[in-house]
């Protein structure tokens, strides 16, 4: 049994004005999420990610198709006890304190008093908001709101967690925090389904990925499967104690060499030159700081499917 099963789901919005054609948001979308995995739902803005999530949570009705979660049809009240949800850019009751806020959702999920206060203590600890416990949400920063929102989604210890753009608008530290949280959930055997338009989020933590473009699933599978289309991977080397741009043998191989203070960044187009370049660096007395393989194929796939003509270099950071 899959954690989420979506089969041939279409969603047409009634036009805002009679006579206009209906807007198709989903055109026969099918996907499945296995239990215990982290599934990244990737797509550009307006591809239908949020619509899909809304249909999963029966905030919206599909025009046609079949939707199941944890083996029950969408809309089943009991199954919602086992699901946690964080909407995109959440706005919560700002008159509540963090504690009251979590208690409210815990009550709705049917938690009893004793267990509820234990869960609240635990989750505030996990999301790092223990000190903000009695502060009203209106005084929270955006990152804090996102974290308390996550705590809300997890208050009843759900088997399946659905997150809509959980990392958007967060600073790097905040993103790392959320990433760690999601990985921690998998360690507990939970299923995590999250949507995003940010590729590195997916690449780093997802077991499997689905790419939605214009209401259809364009590709899905393991991340390494999706990127192993014969594309060569580029590599970035960071080293110190050497001025690499003054070494002609290195600049000849590299696509780019940047000197930033003591650190030097060398971008190589082919991973098979890595050993040669590393040897040259060591020979000059330099020390290796890091080697990062740059996977760009997901991005290429993403933009190709989106019919976007923007040429994107595989090493461009998003």
């Amino acid at each position: 049994m899959d954690a989420i099963l979506v089969e041939e789901v279409t969603k047409k919005f009634r036009p805002g004005w009679p006579g206009l054609p209906p807007v198709t948001a989903l055109a026969g979308l099918s996907l499945s999420v296995h239990k215990g995995e982290i599934y990244g739902f990737l797509g550009p803005n307006g591809a239908g990610k949020t619509t899909t999530l809304k249909i999963l949570l029966s905030l919206m009705r599909a025009t046609s198709g079949k939707v199941e979660m944890l083996g029950k049809p969408a809309g089943d009240l009991e199954v919602r006890r086992r699901i946690g949800f964080l909407p995109e850019a959440p706005y919560f009751y700002d008159y509540l304190t963090a504690e009251e806020f979590l208690a409210f959702y815990g009550h709705l999920a049917g938690l009893e008093r004793g267990e509820l206060s234990r869960r609240i203590d635990h989750l505030l600890e996990v999301v790092g908001l223990r000190d903000a416990r009695t502060r009203q949400l209106r005084k929270f920063s955006k990152g804090m709101l996102q974290r308390v929102g996550l705590a809300q989604a997890l208050i009843h210890d759900p088997e399946l967690v659905i997150l809509d753009e959980p990392m958007s608008g967060l600073d790097p530290l905040g993103r790392k925090h959320v990433r760690d949280l999601i990985l921690g959930l998998r360690d507990q055997g939970k299923t995590v389904f999250f949507s995003t338009h940010i590729i590195p989020d997916v690449e780093m933590i997802c077991d499997r990925v689905g790419i939605i473009v214009k209401g259809k699933l364009m590709a899905s599978g393991r991340v390494d499967e999706l990127v192993s289309h014969g594309h060569t991977q580029s590599v970035e080397i960071v080293c110190e104690g050497i001025k690499a741009d003054e070494v002609p043998s290195i600049t000849a191989l590299a696509t780019r060499v940047l000197q930033r203070g003591r650190h030097c960044l060398v971008a190589l187009p082919e991973p098979n030159q890595l050993e040669d370049v590393l040897a040259m660096i060591r020979a000059r007395g330099g020390r290796l700081v890091s080697v990062t393989p740059q996977k760009g194929s997901l991005e290429e796939l993403f933009f190709k499917e989106d019919d976007m003509t923007v040429s994107v270099r595989s090493d461009t950071k998003v």
Binding site: R61, A62, S64, K66, V67, E68, P73, A74, G75
Partner: peptide, 8 residues
């Protein structure tokens, strides 16, 4: 659940 405008 079949989401069709059916008898239900």
């Amino acid at each position: 659940m079949k989401l069709k405008a059916g008898t239900e």
